[in-house]
Amino acid sequence: MAREHKNSLVKTPFTDDVYLVNRPKKFTMPAFTQFDGTGDPSRHLDHYAQKMALDDHNDPWMCKVFPTSITGAALEWFRNRPQKSIPDYETLCTMFLAQYCGNKKQKKNIANLFTIRQKKGEILQDFLSRFNMEALKIADCHPATAIETFKLAMIQGTKFHTSLVKYSPPDMQTLNTRARIYIRLEENVAHRAQHTTLVTVENKPQERVSNSKSRRNQHASAPTIQVPEKRQRTEERFMPLRTTLARLFQENKMKFAAPQPIRQPLE
C-alpha cells in the first residue's frame, strides 16, 4: 500500500500496470536515435521496435522504455498526456502517430518508377542500384510491373536489354542475379580498354624517337648536291632580269660577232 500511495503521487500518463512493471533481467538499454518531433513517426517506431526486439513480448516494458527514445518537443508532448491514459503499447503508438501524422512521409507509387531512365554513359551497376533503391520506396510494387518498368528505363539495344526482352525473369531477384553476369562483362571490357590505352601511351614516346631517328638517317643517306663556287658568286653578283630575252637580243644583236663556220662534215 505504501508503494501504491508513493507512486500515485508521480505524474505519469501510464497506468499502474505499465508504470510499476519491473525491469527484466539482463536487460541492456539500447542506444536510440532520439525523435524530437520533426522526423517521420513511423520510421521512429520501426527503429524503436528493432532496438527492443528482444523485449517486444513484454508490452508494459515496451511502454515504459519508450520515453527514453524521444526528446525536445516530443518528450514535452508525452509528459502532457492525461494521467493513466496509456494502458498498453498499442495505445501509445496510436497516440504518437496521430500527434505527428503531418510529419509522415508519403510513400511513392509505381508512377515514380516510370520517371527513371538510364543515363547516357551510366554503367549497368550504377543504374541497377539506383532503380532498386527507388523500387524499395514503393509500397506493394508488383514484380512483373517492376520488371517491365526496368526494361523501359534501360538504354534500348544493349546486350542485357536484349536478354530481358527474349527471356523475361519472373521476379526482381532473378533479374538482379542475371544482371551480375553483364556487369562483369562491362567491367572486363572497361578493364581491357584501359589496359590498351595505357599500352598506347607508354609506346608513343618510343615511336616518336624511332620516327625521328629514321628521318635523320634518311636525311644523312641522301646525296648532297654540290653547287660550284663560281656559280654561287655569279648568282649573288647579278640582278634578276626585268625584261625578256627576245627584247635583250634585239637591242644588243649588233654587239655579238658572227659564229665561226663549221669545219667538220655535217654528217
Rank of each mutant, 00 (worst) to 15 (best):
H5I: 03
P13L: 05
F14G: 01
F14L: 02
V18S: 06
Y19K: 01
Y19T: 00
P24H: 13
P24N: 08
K26F: 15
F27I: 00
P30Q: 11
F35K: 04
T38C: 03
T38K: 15
T38H: 14
P41F: 07
A49K: 13
Q50G: 06
K51V: 05
M52A: 04
L54G: 06
L54F: 14
D56V: 09
N58E: 06
N58G: 02
D59V: 01
W61E: 00
M62G: 01
V65W: 05
V65I: 14
F66T: 03
S69M: 07
T71D: 12
P82F: 04
Q83K: 09
K84M: 10
P87H: 12
L92K: 03
M95R: 10
C101T: 05
N103W: 10
K108A: 15
N112R: 08
Q118N: 04
G121A: 00
E122T: 05
E122Q: 14
L124H: 04
F127I: 01
L136S: 12
H142A: 07
T145M: 07
T145Y: 11
T145Q: 12
A146T: 08
A146C: 12
F150W: 11
K151D: 02
K151A: 07
T158W: 09
H161K: 08
V165Q: 08
P169D: 02
D171N: 15
M172F: 15
Q173D: 10
Q173I: 08
Q173N: 14
T174D: 05
I183H: 04
H191V: 01
L198F: 09
T200V: 10
V201N: 09
E202W: 08
E202D: 14
K204G: 02
Q206K: 15
E207P: 00
V209G: 03
S214V: 11
R216A: 15
R216I: 04
N217D: 13
N217Y: 14
Q218H: 12
V227H: 13
P228S: 15
E229Q: 07
E229L: 06
Q232D: 05
E236D: 11
M239V: 02
L241M: 03
R242V: 04
L248V: 00
F256R: 01
E267W: 13
